[in-house]
Design a protein around this nucleic acid. Structure first.
Lengths: 158, 158
DNA sequence: TTAATCGGTACCGGATTAGTACTATTTATG
DNA sequence: CATAAATAGTACTAATCCGGTACCGATTAA
């Protein structure tokens, strides 16, 4: 399946909290409490988001994190991308096919960037503003032909 | 990062082989040899694809697998979806939010199906026919703003 | 009858991820 | 100026999941 790491999953949850906070900084502890997530994890994720430039961090008493841009200017792709690090497993979907031992028997590799881009575009089309709507209009049923294609969203699992 | 399992990755490789075979059945061993993939793995994947109705299997001597539909009628979403099984980790992105212990503190969950569908649509727009073109026109560079969003396509890694 | 091939299940090892612990650094506030 | 509240960084452990293998049964053309 196509899955997203739990880190990115939590990241989206936290970002929606901050979107609703309207620029006012929130501490990691407050966010963890609000979403019922483990504090160290929340802390780690917020740090990463700040490093990626999506959040502004304010240290010291009364400090916290706040959005660096307006919710409408932040996409799901931004958040997920920020939390996934520039991992090395990108060889065949990215630009550098060097070091690909199977290249001579693989005519498909050139197509991965296309798929890549298609998914990226899909994720970029969804803004944080949209995701922050408190009660979304229950979207139309997923029209998978025979089997549900699932994103591994573990955010709400036990 | 957003990653695809290696199984699905191999699956696409194998499907392109079969697309080029033009209806003529190929044995698992032949496909494994052609793509330089481990035979047991190939066997496992082909079985799953056949069960999903994407391949037709012919047992016995001179048997093998062949496409159940025309390459143009099979999408990347079909292949990936077939290999990812109806895992249980779908609770929050699928339809049934039941059993989600954090539901009351999670206003985002309702949005996962949307993201889900967006990605699904992207994958469905790419047909096996397109992917089987021997040497694809090197697609335009991936226009990620600051960081490459990567699909973990490990097909061509060592 | 035989050999080639698909079908299914169970299992193991390794890699990645989730989560934790600890310490240093910054800063508002009294 | 001292203190407490908060972020920043790093290293580490534990659990899960994935890739891969092995084995045996069922089919079927020759």
């Amino acid at each position: 399946m196509i899955r997203i790491t739990r880190e990115a999953d939590y990241g989206i949850l936290l970002m929606t909290c901050l979107a609703q906070a309207e620029g006012q900084p929130r501490s990691a502890a407050a966010l963890a409490q609000q979403r019922r997530l483990p504090l160290p994890m929340v802390s780690k994720i917020l740090k990463a988001l700040a490093r990626a430039g999506l959040l502004i961090s304010q240290r010291g008493v009364q400090g916290g994190y706040s959005l660096a841009r307006l919710p409408a200017e932040i996409s799901a792709a931004d958040i997920i991308g920020a939390l996934e690090g520039p991992l090395a497993i990108t060889e065949c979907s990215g630009e550098n096919h060097d070091g690909c031992s199977r290249l001579e028997h693989c005519e498909v590799s050139g197509h991965w960037p296309r798929i890549n881009q298609a998914i990226y575009a899909a994720l970029q089309s969804i803004s944080l503003l949209e995701m922050s709507r408190p009660d979304p209009p229950r979207p139309v049923r997923f029209h998978a032909p025979h089997r549900v294609m699932a994103i591994n969203a573990t955010s709400s699992l036990v």
